[in-house]
Write a protein that binds this DNA or RNA. Structure first.
Lengths: 145, 145
DNA sequence: TAATAAAAGGATATTCTTGTCCTTTATTCA
DNA sequence: TGAATAAAGGACAAGAATATCCTTTTATTA
């Protein structure tokens, strides 16, 4: 198992790609994004529809339409995408799947996993969607698989 | 997404349960284990067959048969189970699914995820299968969901 | 040695994730 | 206003993870 689902990986890469285009005032079309992040186009369409419904990205139909993110969304943390797609599983719940594990009755790995999950949460919360743009512009980062 | 797959959660809980019984010289039968860790019996059978083939646990057929772990296995790290079931995904590979991400050409989250994954790896490597027995004996820990 | 108990193994069923296809709706522009 | 473009939406398909069923093999013990 990877850390994120495949759907979530696509979502993150796509939003980065869209944010990058948005920074120069452009919108990104589905074909463009799918090619840019190396993902199946029609599956990505579903993911973007979902993110759009949830208000994480915006879309415009018709000629010269496409996806973009506004300034507010650029400032949003990466965790918003992860939660929208993969839910809270990475941050909460006993790692061993024990229902009775809690702060009051912790499993033997509870505190250690708590610390690690806290770090993942911190990382995803302090990293913003727009924060990758410099690196994308500098060409240091490719979003292709 | 949780950290481990459901299969892996069952596997970990089952091995803990078996290890606990083994400590008092007993073997654990499938029904017993499934009830003890609250998992579907026949699915668990497949998981245990797999762990047995991979040498992580031992089994004996026939009356008074069942599963047990030898002293060697008690000393094994939890990471052995996780790797056997969920593979290397938790420890290796770019978190964002970027093929080109590497030490030489790291993605923007590479180093931070590397640290977190290192901690997960350390935790799972330094925790042994047998290490939970005191807590199970003390009744502090329940393996039921 | 026969009866029984318990895991092993193969096949199938169900559910969830991932991926595709086709039609509809909204927008642009000639 | 009509044609073209691009996302939205609904339905379906493939694959993987999870779960169940049935038969076979191996061991115990009466």
């Amino acid at each position: 198992m990877a850390i994120f689902s495949k759907t979530c990986e696509y979502a993150i890469r796509a939003v980065f790609y869209i944010a990058h285009k948005s920074a120069s005032g452009d919108r990104a079309g589905l074909k463009d994004i799918a090619a840019g992040i190396d993902s199946p186009e029609l599956y990505l369409a579903k993911i973007l529809q979902d993110l759009s419904r949830k208000g994480l990205i915006r879309s415009v139909k018709g000629p010269n339409g496409g996806f973009y993110v506004d300034a507010d969304s650029l400032a949003r943390p990466l965790s918003d995408i992860v939660e929208a797609v993969d839910g809270q599983g990475l941050f909460h719940g006993c790692a061993l799947g024990l229902k009775q594990c809690s702060e009051i009755n912790p499993c033997p790995l509870h505190d250690q996993f708590k610390s690690i999950r806290g770090q993942i949460s911190d990382l995803l919360h302090r990293t913003t969607i727009g924060g990758f743009n410099e690196e994308l512009i500098g060409g240091l980062l490719s979003l292709k698989k």
